[in-house]
């Protein structure tokens, strides 16, 4: 196994573990951002340059910032949760289940003889753009995803907006 891959994998796993096990939620959010960043690096290393850039923009740029915003907006509650001692047995029970699942899959894969890589496939960003807009089914999927994103963002806005009982007719 190559050295860069091992370094990237170690960063991904270490920061992901830190993100799920630290007490302070701000630290958790920052460690998750580091893990997303390292995942983007892995995509770049695997020759998927477009996906690496998308990962940087979507996860590090948007999702991680959204997580940090949520942590800060709900700060009193998260601080109160920090003050309460975490139920450690519950965490370790969860960790036991997860390590069993992850370890079982990983140990099966360790003995699995995967096909050897021939040559790295080349798929440039221009090519991806052409594929997304040229073929009929990809265009349909693109439109559906665009509608999904719009619906999800409007829904998120409605969920997070302050409730106005008296302006909506028939409220309570």
């Amino acid at each position: 196994m190559s050295i860069p891959f091992l370094i990237i994998a170690a960063v991904i796993l270490a920061s992901a573990w830190a993100a799920v096990s630290l007490r302070n939620l701000v630290h958790c959010g920052l460690c998750a951002a580091l893990s997303f960043l390292a995942t983007g690096t892995l995509y770049l290393y695997l020759n998927a340059e477009f996906l690496g850039l998308v990962q940087l923009m979507v996860y590090v740029g948007a999702v991680a910032v959204l997580i940090l915003f949520t942590v800060l907006l709900t700060r009193p509650a998260t601080e109160a949760a920090d003050a309460v001692p975490t139920k450690r047995p519950a965490f370790w029970k969860g960790a036991l289940i997860a390590i069993t699942v992850g370890g079982a899959v990983a140990s099966c894969l360790a003995v699995y003889a995967a096909p050897k890589a021939s040559t790295a496939p080349e798929l440039s960003i221009q090519e991806i753009g052409r594929l997304l807009t040229a073929s009929q089914q990809n265009v349909l999927a693109l439109i559906i995803v665009a509608l999904l994103m719009t619906t999800a963002l409007i829904g998120a806005l409605l969920l997070a907006a302050p409730a106005e009982e008296d302006t909506k007719g028939g409220g309570a």
Partner: peptide
């Protein structure tokens, strides 16, 4: 995936 499960369960 296992680490994600830790967060979801624990």
């Amino acid at each position: 995936f296992g680490i994600g499960l830790v967060a979801v369960f624990g």
